[in-house]
């Protein structure tokens, strides 16, 4: 099975809540997964299940836990806000 690289970027102070040491917003959390892996499995395998209640985006669009990744991608995970 072919591997792909997922870069998970955390915002809204999530990195502090998850107590990820030395988190760097420029590099994010790098996760290697099999091609075709669903988002819910990516966050479960990386031990970040607590994130499942938050909002995920990739390629400028909102994605959900069932989204499958066929190629390397950057995913942003945030708490939602309400407008300015």
């Amino acid at each position: 099975m072919e591997d792909i690289i997922i870069t998970l970027k955390l915002y809204s102070g999530l990195e502090k809540e998850l107590k990820i040491p030395d988190y760097n917003v420029n590099s994010g959390v790098i996760i290697k997964v099999n091609k075709g892996t669903k988002l819910k499995n990516i966050i479960a395998d990386s031990g970040l299940q607590k994130l499942s209640g938050y909002a995920f985006f990739s390629g400028g669009e909102r994605i959900n836990l069932r989204t499958k990744f066929m190629e390397s991608a950057e995913i942003s995970c945030l708490k939602i806000s309400g407008g300015g």
């Binding site: 915002y11 809204s12 102070g13 909002a55 985006f57 400028g60 669009e61 909102r62 942003s76 945030l78 708490k79 939602i80 806000s81 407008g83 300015g84």
Partner: peptide, 13 residues
Amino acid sequence: FGTNANVNLNNAG
């Protein structure tokens, strides 16, 4: 974070 919490959210979206 005030209304500026929208920056990262809007950038991602």
